[in-house]
Computed example of a mutant assay.
Amino acid sequence: MQIIVDVPNNYLDVLHRAPEDFAQEAKLAMAAKLFEMKRLSSGMAASLIGMDRVTFLAQLHRFGVPMIDLTEDELAQDIENA
């Protein structure tokens, strides 16, 4: 499947971005949001945009998305199981 989004040229001018840079950032933002919503795993999100998992996880901070989003109980359970 392919998603096509029309972006007016003046948006790129305002953002001071080349079309390729804007497209990559938009894909990363989409993947980060899908990961944040727990719709995709980090590996699946990274694969979706052609990025390795470690690089994807390292970029999440740019979008305010935590790498690990566990409740206190989930974290305690993980520690107990370690």
Rank of each mutant, 00 (worst) to 15 (best):
M1W: 08
M1T: 06
Q2C: 12
I3D: 02
I3Q: 06
V5C: 03
V7D: 11
V7L: 05
P8D: 06
N9S: 15
N10A: 13
N10K: 13
L12Y: 02
L12A: 00
D13P: 02
H16M: 15
H16T: 12
E20I: 15
D21C: 13
D21G: 04
A23D: 07
A23Q: 14
Q24A: 13
Q24S: 15
E25S: 10
E25Q: 15
A26G: 04
A26Q: 07
K27Y: 13
L28N: 00
M30G: 05
A31W: 01
A32T: 00
L34W: 09
F35W: 02
E36M: 08
E36G: 01
R39Q: 11
L40H: 01
L40N: 01
S41C: 09
M44C: 01
M44D: 09
M44Q: 13
M44L: 14
S47N: 14
L48V: 03
I49L: 08
G50S: 10
D52V: 10
R53Q: 11
R53K: 12
R53A: 05
F56R: 00
A58D: 15
L60W: 12
L60N: 02
R62Y: 06
R62K: 15
F63G: 02
F63A: 02
G64V: 04
M67N: 14
M67P: 00
I68L: 11
L70G: 06
T71R: 13
T71Q: 04
E72R: 12
E72P: 08
D73Q: 07
D73I: 07
E74S: 08
L75A: 07
A76N: 11
A76I: 06
Q77H: 04
D78W: 04
D78G: 09
D78E: 09
I79A: 11
I79E: 11
E80G: 09
E80Q: 11
E80M: 13
N81F: 08
N81H: 07
N81A: 15
A82L: 10
